[in-house]
Design a binder for these strands. Structure first.
Length: 836
RNA sequence: GCCGAAGUGGCGGAAUGGUAGACGCGCCGGUCUCAAAAACCGGUGGGGGCAACCCCAUGUCGGUUCGACUCCGACCUUCGGCACCA
């Protein structure tokens, strides 16, 4: 990739001029966008008698510039929404801004602009860019999450969640980004690095606000109402929740004379309980300081200190050697009375299960390497098939018969699991339990540009929620943004100091703000009544519009936004605020638009495509068409500066075709066969467009429309059809093209003498009879290889087809001297002659 | 390492188990032009043949089938996701 960015841009502009435009698309964009706006063409009424269709796109972050990736997301989605509208739906296709978040604050720090100023001016600019798409957004419904009218309802919802016990404060080891100086959600730590700035993350113990999403783990695992979601998203959510069934089993430590008499561990392999030869606790486990003997304390403390410093990327890597330190203490396995040494090891996570594991080196690969390193015994208790009693080279993870297992000897390990679990429960040594990989959702952020968490700390009353009538808790405009690790709000005395709502004594406000995923977890509800001031949404309107019928956005939100939104809707449903259980009925993930060099677009690579420039030259319709034409929407694909000329030329031809006077055709005799063929192709095209647009297969829909224009050009050149047929064809064609290219079709609709907008017309319908072929090309195969092609009536009978096939000279040359064993006939398709 | 998706002309891509390469880009030839661009018309997977035609070809190797880009198995490559979850 050449790095001379400047000359490349001019080079690209030259390429565009390879098409000489016969009409002025830029003028049309302006004319119609203004007129649609003036006429309130895109305003959506709540009292429309037609069935509703809520088509939602993931709203953008107002970074200040709409790039071609936004176009790739929004233009096809708009086409689909327009298509549904022409099908007779009252379509809500709203747009807004995900306006809180770090970049605004970083701009404030690096350039001295207030986040509010930066964000709002970006929004202002992006509104104009979004308008250039020509989409049917109803701007009266726009939402901007950083405005108090929106975020007060974040606070309101937070209070509701708190009342339900779904929001709580806890000290927890949290993911910390030392560069952003804030806590991150688990989901925002990517490969041990901060999602935003790529800095290796560390852990910190902090008092934080959490949402109890784990309470909903099982319900979030129920995908029965999500049959129209892509399977890969469901799989990701399934794995993210990571439900495992097992047993919590405790080991006796009463001999240590502590208040705590046992250590609890979680295992999915209780069948291996007789193979336990040691225990490992997470370094952060609360029993560690109590159990450590004086002799070992030096080593243990050093190990803990080191584990704290180790970045997550090292600690979580499967490559890292498993290390640990003996505490000097022992526990007893109650099933066989054995004494087991207790270790700490950083491969045990405090956040999963009970923070302690039973070490079964024979049947767990991690325990195996740990045992080897510290020379701990390895005892096989589930015998591999045809095991000869020799030692293992690696852990055996498969099934087998129980051995060295006391009363359970000889059972299959699956039977053993149940029998042992039963006995453990009978003796109250533990119980069957379910563990989840999923953690509660940490929503506290030590940053300024977010929704203040509406909580107050009072020395007398403890944690007191801000009363509803005191909302919103406004973000003070005059805060210092320097990231110190504490929220900037903590340094703002005016914000910090308040009165306790209960006792009216002096109190302090919570100074953390909310994760912006909180905002987007319910924004689809706000669009139905963006002005509503008695609650986050008008319940009647929510009832009317939701759930979202079609949601589109990137797959990168699989375990974050999409997951959180599902949780919110379930929680709100439980509170009786809404009456549905899933926010998005259908989900479609569009792919990623790549640069011409097939790499991801990035400023550093210098391969970014600027949509404004191309729209300013070729018009919005050409860009819309080309983005949809590149390939299947869910696959994404490379942009091509030359390729867009193809659709531009095509739109030129469309302009040309519609500009012809159909009466010119009267000067020539009409060919009835050509008329039938034309009508047939029209109906086939309508059918194909309908089916393809329904399923987001824009590329093949456009290809079919191109074929129709090619056909029309041909019959025009031959003057083979009559003016009435021509008129019907071009009119229906225009309607088919309308959702794809709204500006040119609106202009041509007006020019051909129609009053009213083309976009208020019905999408054309087809009938299969008119679309049916009269003649087909019957493929004749011999042993599966094509040997001849015959023009025959479409409804030809098998016997007749067989006779024709066998009579073919070409077929004869391949069957000569051989015997025909049978023929296979596929009606309307082919006949295959099988010889020998 | 595990899970998932995808590999088709020079390029983007099309094909309910039934004509592989629709549509478009690019390229080649022609028309128009003083010339070029644009536009329009025609051609365009590889190999062989004067030709009619024939052979080969959808990542690789097998399999199922009258027939496989499509279904099954193994492998290779690319791209996503997860990655000590006991």
């Amino acid at each position: 990739m050449a790095s001379c960015g400047q000359s490349e841009v001019t080079g690209m502009a030259t390429i565009h001029r390879h098409v000489e435009l016969r009409y002025d698309p830029v003028a049309l964009d302006k004319k119609w966008q203004e007129r649609w706006e003036r006429d309130g063409h895109h305003r959506v009424s709540d009292d429309d008698p037609r069935p509703k269709w809520y088509e939602l796109v993931m709203y953008p972050y107002p970074s200040g510039d709409l790039h071609i990736g936004h176009w790739y997301h929004y233009a096809p989605a708009d086409c689909h929404a327009r298509f549904k509208r022409m099908q007779g739906y009252n379509v809500l296709h709203p747009m807004g801004f995900d306006a809180f978040g770090l970049p605004a604050e970083n701009a404030a720090i690096s350039r001295g602009i207030h986040p509010q100023t930066w964000t709002m001016s970006n929004i202002e600019y992006m509104r104009g860019q979004l308008r250039s798409i020509g989409a049917i957004y109803d701007w009266d419904r726009e939402i901007v999450t950083c405005l108090p009218e929106y975020y007060r309802w974040n606070q309101w919802l937070f209070l509701k969640l708190y009342q339900q016990g779904l929001a709580y404060r806890a000290k927890a080891p949290v993911v910390w980004c030392p560069s952003c100086n804030t806590v991150l959600a688990n989901e925002q730590a990517v490969n041990g690095n901060c999602e935003r700035c790529d800095t290796p993350i560390t852990r910190r113990d902090l008092e934080q606000w959490f949402l109890r999403i784990t309470d909903y783990a099982d319900r979030l695992l129920d995908f029965n109402n999500l049959t129209d979601w892509p399977q890969n998203i469901l799989t990701m959510q399934h794995n993210w929740i990571g439900r495992s069934e097992g047993v919590e089993i405790s080991f006796d430590i009463s001999s240590h004379g502590l208040e705590v008499k046992e250590i609890s561990t979680f295992t999915t392999r209780i069948d291996t309980i007789f193979g336990v030869t040691f225990l490992v606790l997470a370094p952060e486990h609360p029993l560690v300081p109590l159990l450590t003997t004086g002799e070992q304390s030096g080593q243990v403390e050093a190990y803990i200190a080191k584990a704290r410093q180790t970045s997550d990327i090292d600690r979580l890597s499967t490559e890292t050697e498993k290390t640990g330190v003996f505490l000097g203490a022992y526990a007893v396995n109650r099933l066989n009375g054995e004494r087991l040494p207790i270790f700490i090891g950083d491969y045990v996570l405090i956040t999963y299960g009970t923070g302690a594991v039973m070490g079964v080196p024979a049947h767990d690969s991690r325990d195996f390497v740990f045992a080897q390193k510290y020379r701990l015994p390895v005892r096989i208790v589930v015998a591999p098939i045809s095991w000869d009693g020799s030692e293992l080279a690696e852990a055996y993870l498969g099934d087998g018969f129980m051995t060295n297992s006391g009363p359970y000897e000889g059972m299959t390990n699956e039977e053993g699991k149940e029998a042992i679990a039963d006995d453990i429960e009978k003796n109250a040594w533990g119980k069957r339990a379910v563990s989840y990989r999923l953690r509660d959702w940490l929503i506290s952020r030590q940053r300024y540009w977010g929704t203040p968490i509406p909580m107050i700390f009072c020395d007398h009353c403890g944690i007191v929620p801000v009363p509803e009538e005191d909302l919103p808790v406004l973000l003070p405009p005059d805060a210092e943004f320097k990231p110190t690790g504490e929220s900037p709000l903590a340094a703002h005395q005016g914000f910090l100091n308040t009165r306790c709502p209960k006792c009216a004594g002096p109190a302090r406000r919570e100074t953390d703000t909310m994760d912006t995923f909180f905002d987007s977890s319910w924004y689809m509800l706000r669009y139905v009544s963006p002005e509503h001031s008695d609650g986050p949404f008008d319940p009647g309107k929510a009832l009317e519009w939701l759930p979202v019928d079609q949601y589109t956005g990137g797959a990168e939100h699989a375990v974050m936004h999409l997951f959180y939104a599902r949780f919110f809707i379930k929680a709100l449903n439980d509170m009786g605020l809404i009456n549905f259980d899933e926010p998005f009925s259908r989900l479609f993930n569009q792919g990623v638009i790549l640069a011409e060099d097939h790499a991801r677009m990035s400023k550093s690579r210098g391969n970014v495509v600027d949509p404004d420039e191309i729209v300013g030259e070729l018009g919005a319709d050409a860009v819309r068409c080309f983005l949809m034409f590149i390939g299947p929407w869910d696959q994404g694909g490379p942009w091509s500066a030359v390729g867009i000329n193809g659709v531009s030329r095509w739109l030129n031809r469309v302009w040309d075709i519609l500009g012809r006077d159909p009466d010119d055709l009267q000067k020539h005799p009409t060919d009835p066969q050509a008329v039938r063929a034309t009508m047939r192709q029209l109906h086939q095209t309508i059918r194909k467009c309908h089916n393809d647009l329904e399923r987001f297969k824009f590329n093949t829909a456009i290809a079919a429309l191109m074929e129709l224009t090619n056909h029309l050009n041909k019959v025009w050149a031959e003057a083979a059809i009559d003016p009435a047929t021509w008129r019907e064809c071009v009119e229906k064609f225009l309607l088919l093209l309308a959702p794809i290219a709204p500006h040119i079709t609106e202009e041509l609709w007006e020019m051909s003498g129609h009053s009213g907008s083309i976009h208020r017309q019905d999408f054309p319908t087809w009938d299969d009879e008119s679309a049916a072929e009269e003649l087909i090309t019957l493929v004749v195969q011999v042993n599966g290889k094509v040997r001849d092609r015959l023009e025959v009536p479409a409804d030809i009978e098998e016997a007749a087809a067989q006779e024709l096939a066998l009579a073919s000279a070409k077929v004869k040359s391949f069957t000569e001297g051989k015997s025909v064993s049978r023929t296979i006939y596929v009606p309307g398709r082919l006949i295959n002659v099988v010889v020998e």
